[in-house]
C-alpha cells in the first residue's frame, strides 16, 4: 500500500524513484527520508519530466514530491478519502479536492454543461466550477472532503440527486446533469435552498460530503 491513512485526516505516502507524487501545495505535514519538493506550475511545464501532469487550474497550486521516503499529507483538518483507480473509468473531481495523487495519473480539465448552463454552473452554483478535473490512468488518489465522503451507488434506471456544493467526486459510466429549478420563491430568498441539483444517472459511484462547504485555500 503506497497510500496509508494514518487517521481520517492524514495520509502517509511512500515516495520512491519509480513513484513520484503530485500534491496540493501547502498540504505536506512532514516527511522522513530523502524526499525533495518542488513547485509545479502551469500545464506542460513541471519538474522532473512530469510534463502534462500538472493541473491547469491556477487556483490550486501543486507541487511534486520526488526521491525516496515517506511524506504525510493533510489539509486544514479536512477528511481524506483514498481511491484506487484501475483505469477502467475516469474519476471526475473538483481540482481543489485533490490532496495528493500519483504523478503517473493524467489530469485534464473538464467542464460540465455547455453554453449558458456552463456559465450558470460556474458562476452561480459553485463559484468556481464543477468537476473541473478528469483523472485518468492507473494509480492512487487522495481526496479532501469536509467531514468525510460517503459513496452512493448509481444503477441504471435510478437517479441520484446531489447538492452541487456537497458533490465530491464520481467514477463510472455516468451522466451528470445540472437541474436548475429557479422559481420566484428562490428569487426572493424563501426557497428550499435546493434549487440546484445534480442528477446522476448510469452505472457507477458518486461521493458526497456531509456539508456544503468548499475547500478553502
Amino acid at each position: 500500500m503506497a497510500y496509508e491513512l494514518l487517521n481520517s485526516k492524514v495520509v502517509a505516502v511512500d515516495v520512491t524513484g519509480q513513484r513520484p507524487v503530485l500534491s496540493r501545495r501547502g498540504a505536506m505535514l512532514g516527511y522522513s527520508g530523502r524526499v525533495a519538493f518542488a513547485p509545479v506550475h502551469g500545464q506542460g511545464t513541471g519538474v522532473g519530466g512530469m510534463v502534462g501532469a500538472a493541473l491547469a487550474s491556477e487556483s490550486v497550486p501543486m507541487m511534486a514530491s520526488t526521491g525516496d521516503g515517506k511524506a504525510l499529507f493533510g489539509h486544514r483538518g479536512l477528511h481524506v478519502t483514498v481511491l484506487d483507480l484501475d483505469g477502467s473509468a475516469p474519476l471526475l473531481v473538483e481540482a481543489d479536492r485533490l490532496l495528493v495523487h500519483d504523478a503517473a495519473l493524467q489530469t485534464s480539465v473538464q467542464f460540465l454543461g455547455q453554453g449558458g448552463l456552463k456559465a450558470m454552473v460556474r458562476g452561480m452554483a459553485t463559484g468556481q466550477g464543477l468537476f473541473t478535473t478528469q483523472v485518468n490512468g492507473v494509480g492512487q488518489v487522495a481526496l479532501l472532503s469536509h467531514g468525510g465522503a460517503f459513496p452512493l451507488q448509481v444503477q441504471p434506471g435510478e437517479t441520484v440527486g446531489v447538492d452541487p456544493q456537497a458533490y465530491v467526486a464520481s467514477k463510472g459510466q455516468l451522466s451528470l446533469d445540472l437541474s436548475a429549478k429557479v422559481g420566484w420563491r428562490e428569487a426572493v430568498g424563501r426557497g428550499s435552498g435546493e434549487a440546484f441539483q445534480i442528477h446522476v444517472t448510469g452505472t457507477g459511484t458518486v461521493w458526497v460530503q456531509a456539508s456544503e462547504q468548499k475547500v478553502k485555500a
Binding site: V160, G161, A166, G191, S192, S211
Partner: peptide, 17 residues
C-alpha cells in the same frame, strides 16, 4: 432545515415550509 439536503435517491421534492 432549509438547504440541508446533500443527496437523495428516488422521487423526493423539496419546498419551503
Amino acid at each position: 432545515v432549509t438547504g440541508s439536503m446533500v443527496a437523495f435517491t428516488g422521487a423526493v421534492q423539496f419546498k419551503h415550509a
